[in-house]
């Protein structure tokens, strides 16, 4: 089903892979040797309890300064991301939609999207984004941080789609949202899936994540403890109890 890390040399390397990455927040050892792979067009759910290191892993993959990647390799479509800074990885098509959205204060909705389109590669046009999220179109001149939680999430995703994405990293897209809004975002993610955008989704709400994911990786204190299909996780009650508390 999925290629494991021990794939033979003749097999095609995964579209995206992280090899044995270690990352530190200052002196704190957070990401303790994680390896994972994602095929093109796949959606991978990155799960685990609070504090397992999910967000830190995403941030390290996105090449942010903290946590700092001290060891390991990150490859996206043949490019060595581990040698790059965040903006360079972004220019290669890596897109992180952060936890807490990070809508930029002082900029309007439209300016937030325009900001995403200053550097290539550019993805969706603003009009197409407004088609997907009509509420954003209505509020295009409004200051971004005055939007509701759900609208900000839409803006964050819309901002990501404004660029041409090779790998989309979603950090807790459903966090803090009312169930009604969660459903809307779910529909959006379905569309993203239909577009065939390779995605890693971190989500506390494991069931919702597993609904759209193909595969799942579970983390526990900075290490990978499971790597298999989403269905396997859904079916395995022991696994779920042990590492996900559901």
């Amino acid at each position: 089903m999925s290629d494991t890390n021990n794939a033979s040399a003749s097999a095609k390397p995964a579209y995206f892979r992280a090899n044995n990455i270690h990352a530190y927040y200052g002196e704190s050892y957070i990401v303790q040797g994680i390896s994972l792979e994602v095929q093109e067009g796949e959606i991978l759910a990155l799960l685990g309890r609070n504090g397992a290191g999910k967000t830190s892993t995403l941030r390290a993959l996105a090449r942010l300064d903290d946590p700092m990647l001290t060891q390991g390799e990150v490859w996206l479509d043949g490019h060595p991301l581990h040698e790059m800074k965040a903006y360079q990885a972004a220019q290669l098509g890596l897109s992180l939609v952060p936890e807490d959205r990070r809508i930029i204060q002082g900029l309007t909705v439209e300016e937030n999207i325009q900001l995403a389109q200053i550097e290539k590669p550019i993805g969706w046009s603003i009009e197409r984004i407004y088609e997907l999220f009509p509420r954003l179109g209505e509020r295009r001149k409004q200051e971004g941080t005055t939007l509701s939680g759900g609208e900000q999430q839409m803006l964050a995703i819309g901002r990501a789609l404004a660029r041409d994405i090779k790998l989309l990293l979603l950090d807790e897209p459903y966090e803090g949202l009312a169930p009604v809004i969660v459903q809307e975002i779910e529909k959006t993610l379905q569309k993203i899936r239909e577009e065939g955008i390779t995605t890693i989704i971190v989500e506390q709400n494991a069931v919702a994540a597993l609904k759209i994911a193909d595969r799942a990786v579970i983390l526990d204190t900075g290490n990978v403890v499971f790597d298999g299909t989403a269905k396997e996780v859904l079916d395995n009650e022991d696994l779920r109890h042990k590492y996900l508390a559901i």
Binding site: Y87, Q88, A90, R102, Q105, L115
Partner: peptide, 24 residues
């Protein structure tokens, strides 16, 4: 100006601007 907008964005949230591919 666009440059000005990028600077304002960078002043507000430097990290996110980097995530959007801009070398601030």
């Amino acid at each position: 100006t666009t440059f000005g907008m990028v600077v304002r964005a960078g002043m507000a949230d430097r990290e996110t601007v980097g995530l959007l591919g801009i070398n601030i």
